[in-house]
Structure formats: C-alpha cells, structure tokens
Write a protein that binds this DNA or RNA. Structure first.
Lengths: 124, 124
DNA sequence: CACCGTTATCTCCGGTCGGACATAACGACG
DNA sequence: CGTCGTTATGTCCGACCGGAGATAACGGTG
C-alpha cells in the first residue's frame, strides 16, 4: 500500500435550474419517486424523514415549475385521499433520472481524477 | 405562434460531493477562478458580492476537501498579502470546468425536452 | 519603526429554513 | 351522519447562514 484515501468516491449531483427561478434536484426527484411508489405525499415525505409541511411545499413548487402540475392530490374519498404523478410528472422524473445517468457516465474520468486528489501521498 | 414560453432555457448545475461531506459547486469554482484572476481572497469575494468572511470560509472548506490545499494565502509582505491557487487548486478548477462542459454537452437533449414542458399549450 | 493592504478571527444580528404541532376541510363508505 | 386518513394551512420556535463591522496579526517597504 502506497497511499490511503477517504472512503467513497466523489459523486456528482445535478440541479436543474428552471426559468422561473425554481429548480429540481435530487431531493424533489426522490420525493416524486416516493409519491409514485406510495400514492401519498405524507408517506413519501415520511420515507425521507421530512415533515409533511416540507413535502407539501416541495410539491407546491414542483407544480408551479412547469406548465402543468406534476402531482395530482385529492382529499377524502375512497382511499381517504392520496396523490399520484401526472403524465407530466412521470415524464419529468424520467428525464431527471436520465440526466443523472448521463452525467454519471460522462464524468467517470474526472471523478476518478478528483478521487486521486484525496489520496494521502505515501511517505518518501 | 402556437405557444408561449418563459424566457430562458433550463440550466444544469453541478455539485460534486466529496467523501468528507463537503462539496464543490458553481460558487466555490467561481471563487477559485476569482482568486486566480485577482490574486486576493477579498477581491475575489468582492467580485461575487460576497463578504470576506464567507469567501474565507469557502476557502477554508476547499483547503480541507483535498489532501493538499487549493489556495495558498499570505499576510503582509511585498504585495501587502494575497492569495493564489496551488497546482492542486488549478487542477481541481480545471477538472470542475471540464465536468461542467461535459454535462452541458451530455444533457442538451433533456434540457430541450424539459423546456418544452414549460410551454403553455395553445388555445384549442 | 510607522505604514499599508491583506489575511485571519471575533461578535452581533436579521432573514430564512425546516421541524413540531394544531386545526380544518374533504368525501366516500359503512 | 359519524368515521377515517389524507390533504391543506396556519403558528411557534430553534438552528443555521451569511452580512456588517471591529480588531489584530503579518511582513515587506519607505
């Protein structure tokens, strides 16, 4: 062994700034995914250990960001209320995941180079 | 004209998470560039309309992130003190800019698709 | 040895963010 | 028509962030 290194590789995260000044990043993407998986804003928030207030605020922002809402929510009713992604919502989520994968693939070279710069040079 | 759109395209910003929990994003990259250009932490901060305290804190973080400092600063002396990028600093800055360009190129397709989702559909 | 501009460090403070909690509305269902 | 779980909305509060400003250290230079 000639050098040691902090555990874990550098990791690129993506934030897509939208024209209105809002943005979508890993947090909102995960929340969308959680809503798709659980059918509920509060459950999706709970999964991420985030208060309902915050989860609801993020959804409100997401719904403002595009010309059509990404999340459709309903109170009461058969399933005692719930939420689901709209077609636009699924599309935006898929696009963000696609962007994530593309960046990961595009940056592996530089990630490795940065990781080397966290090496602790061996003793002379 | 069949649709209108908010001005400006979506824009991807990159945040590279480093193993220690710190990260480097557009702000720290611009600050490094400013230090390289001005030879001073305070001048670089001023250019970005940021307090010296904040600029100095960012530099401290940057110097902790890698195995060698990115910025070398000196008080007093010939030029009344100043700061410059180390070789590692220049390398990290170049790598980040490279990553920026690669992501821009890799994501143009999805950026365009997201932009279409901010269109306001034409009247029927 | 005083001067200079920058680095380095401190305190104070206002704005912001998010959590915790409370409350109400909702609407099908039994 | 009461029950239920969720959405929707509010208040209160502590944590954190960053700016403003003060102060000192530094070390060549004149």
């Amino acid at each position: 062994m000639t050098s040691s290194r902090k555990p874990g590789l550098p990791q690129a995260k993506l934030r897509v700034m939208m024209p209105g000044g809002d943005w979508i990043g890993p947090g909102k993407a995960d929340l969308l995914e959680g809503i798709e998986a659980t059918g509920s804003i509060s459950a999706a928030g709970k999964r991420m250990r985030m208060s309902y207030k915050r989860a609801w605020g993020l959804v409100e922002t997401l719904n403002r960001m595009f010309s059509e809402p990404l999340v459709s929510a309903s109170r009461g009713g058969a399933g005692h209320g719930g939420a689901e992604l709209t077609a636009t919502g699924r599309e935006v989520l898929a696009l963000y995941r696609q962007m994530q994968h593309r960046t990961e693939n595009a940056l592996s070279q530089e990630i490795a180079a940065l990781s080397r710069l966290t090496d602790i040079p061996a003793e002379k």
